[in-house]
């Protein structure tokens, strides 16, 4: 069992969730309640990681973050570090390939809040920020938990993008999914099996939680006055 890889995966998943949650709340809310030109295009772009082969996504991220790219150069000038084959780059890639997993559940959750509920909050004197904090987020919490669970599980399991962008550097970019592949290559089926079982169990629990929450959220909406 490669505990370094497991720890790195958990660290990556944790930071991905921390960065994505506020972003997903902002974008999910915007997509739920605003109509604007190009909205369908934005939604399609966000959903792309669901259908694009991870290698394709990884390839474009590699191009976009490479040492010769604008972003790569800018980042290097700013921090003295490179984006590709580093944890920082892996985190950025992770945020991007998890966009649909974080945004879509929150968008659905915000869509389920009737406009009148928010209007009632404004009529009660609540500012937009107070309305978000005291009314919208408590009503969309199941969406937020789903977003976190999906993002966390998906980050642990992602292989293609990680390999393309991060490579296979011990304690920097070698996540548990890469380590499983490594162990199989080295004919160490015992280790590979153990780590696979851990991932399987974790993913099952996460998805189970998501389904349980969406079931509860449905009941809540059905019985909503």
């Amino acid at each position: 069992m490669d505990t370094t890889a497991l720890a790195l995966s958990l660290k990556l998943a944790f930071w991905t969730c921390i960065i994505l949650l506020p972003l997903a709340v902002f974008v999910g809310r915007l997509l739920a309640w605003r109509d604007f030109t190009g909205k369908a295009l934005v939604e399609a772009a966000i959903a792309l990681p669901l259908v694009l082969p991870p290698t394709v996504l990884g390839f474009y991220l590699l191009l976009g973050m490479g040492a010769t790219s604008t972003l790569g150069q800018y980042y290097h000038a700013l921090t003295g570090r490179h984006l590709v084959f580093s944890f920082d780059g892996l985190l950025l890639a992770s945020v991007i390939f998890n966009l649909p997993f974080a945004i879509q559940p929150l968008q659905r959750a915000f869509e389920a809040i009737p406009l009148q509920t928010r209007e009632a909050a404004w009529c009660c004197g609540l500012s937009p920020a107070q309305t978000l904090w005291r009314i919208e987020l408590p009503l969309a919490w199941s969406g937020a938990v789903s977003a976190l669970a999906l993002t966390f599980a998906h980050t642990l399991g992602e292989f293609g993008v990680v390999l393309m962008v991060g490579g296979n550097i011990e304690a920097e970019t070698k996540t548990i999914a890469i380590s499983i592949y490594d162990r199989v290559q080295a004919l160490d089926n015992h280790s590979a099996g153990l780590m696979s079982a851990v991932l399987l169990l974790f993913s099952l629990l996460s998805i189970g939680l998501v389904y349980r929450l969406s079931q509860r959220a449905r009941k809540h909406v059905q019985s909503r006055p």
Partner: peptide, 27 residues
């Protein structure tokens, strides 16, 4: 709306479903 100080009763009441009757009012 926040600064107009109006009392509004909506057609389907638009109560906050996650808050108790008292909390709905104290809001």
């Amino acid at each position: 709306t926040q600064d107009r100080r109006i009392g509004f009763v909506f057609q389907d009441y638009a109560l906050f479903p996650h808050l108790s009757a008292l909390q709905n009012i104290t809001t």
